[in-house]
Design a protein around this nucleic acid. Structure first.
Lengths: 249, 249
DNA sequence: ATTACCCTGACGCTGCGTCAGCGTCA
DNA sequence: TTGACGCTGACGCAGCGTCAGGGTAA
């Protein structure tokens, strides 16, 4: 230390914290300046500054103010250990942010090339963003990973069923005589397109071949799902709805 | 997009956001899923996910939820631009965090070598921590820098005055007959030590030579500040207080 | 006397967390 | 029928921001 006690405004100016924040830390007993002038002005000594350093570090490690207070009151969390923890955390953060950077650059590339970006790409990128701001522990990360994998498998198992369900619903609307331009039908058709996209990974080329496949082998598909319908009529119905979506929408 | 609409729990599981958060974004009109099932369950389409992506990005850029909504409703802030801004911000963040990392490593070194760490070092490190979490714009950074420089200069100009003030106060206490062990005196002496530290940069060697200097030339110093006192008596008084601080404290 | 700080309440706000009570879907 | 999931209120809470009203220091 090389220095005299600082007043609250000086601490604020030199740290970037606000005066209100320092007052708050005093109020809740997290950082009480060890000196006061006779008139009651707070004076922060070098020791107070050192404590403040640990406070700010621990906050960035994700602790609540109450937890920070407990940490500093207990014998654990020596200044040294706090610094080491903070360094470790920063390294992880940096690695995550670099990963996020790469993901975003890939996105920017695809925007630039005017390609479509799949919702799954967006979802994965969002996930990294949220990881950046939440800081998960390694165990939490493991849990998240497992959950994702389970979701993936469950989704795959459910796909044929979704198709059957969707076809049935569209067929029902058509037979009720609902016009293809009705919002209900449009919503169904959006799900239709989404299912196709899920299969094709958003690649229009794959989607096109899939379309031909469907035309040629529509009845086979129908039979597979235990449904019976005139594939040509239903197809017209759906394409009419799709045109409505693309047109005036 | 490659995919069918997701329910709120699925979006939550795949992004790391909570269901409550998605509900909240819906409530305030920030992200309303464009579909619902008949029974009212939210269905997030690929477009909704793309919007969510922008929402999360803009939040990390420091916007409030209300500001994010305005951004997305206005024609500015295209998906592309949001991604670019986010990338730029991440680069700055990473650079800052690397800087902070180096500062913390320097601190860890000094702890390891059992050296003393000056309050100014702590202050500078805290400042970077706060910069990391607040994200200042370049202009704000410039303002901060200027403010710091002004503080430095102002402080230097004020030092002689502080000495005079402090000496006067100690002398007053001594003449009032206040014992050297009184808290008031101890506080004054802490300020005394702090002032010495500020001059010596916390180096005990320099402090020692300064101490000898003070003994030999106490009267000169006194004359300079227009004060008159018995330097030997006052010195004894102060050293008694310092002993009290180090001893039973 | 002015100006720039400092103090102590006290209320307000954002961004959700956390029940509670109740439908729903496989 | 029984979980697992979804819905809508409604209240709660952390961490300050932001006055208001008044002392203080150079």
């Amino acid at each position: 230390m090389r220095f005299q006690a600082l007043k609250v405004g000086e601490v604020a100016a030199r740290t970037g914290l606000t005066i209100r924040t320092l007052h708050h830390y005093d109020e809740i007993g997290l950082l009480r300046p060890s000196l006061r002038t006779e008139s009651g002005h707070r004076l922060y000594t070098a020791d107070d500054i050192a404590r403040l350093h640990r406070v700010v570090s621990l906050r960035q490690l994700g602790f609540s103010l109450e937890e920070v207070r407990d940490c500093l009151d207990g014998a654990d969390f020596t200044p040294m250990r706090v610094v080491r923890l903070h360094i470790a955390r920063l390294r992880e953060q940096i690695a995550l942010q670099e990963q996020l950077c790469r993901a975003l650059e890939a996105l920017a590339e695809r925007f630039h090339a005017a390609e479509e970006v799949s919702a799954d790409e967006f979802l994965r990128t969002i996930e990294v963003m949220i990881m950046v701001e939440n800081y998960y522990t390694p165990e939490q990360l493991e849990t998240l990973k497992q959950r994702r994998e389970q979701i993936g498998e469950a989704r795959m198992a459910q796909v044929p069923h979704d198709w059957a369900q969707l076809i049935a619903e569209v067929r029902a609307e058509k037979e009720k005589g609902t016009p293809a331009t009705d919002p209900k039908v449009l919503a169904l058709v959006q799900r239709w397109q989404a299912l196709i996209n899920e299969f094709t990974g958003g690649d229009p080329g794959i989607a096109a071949s899939l379309g031909r496949l469907w035309k040629e082998r529509g009845d086979q598909l129908t039979a597979q799902h235990g449904q019976q319908f005139d594939s040509r009529d239903l197809q017209d119905y759906i394409q009419q709805a799709m045109a409505t979506l693309k047109g005036p929408g």
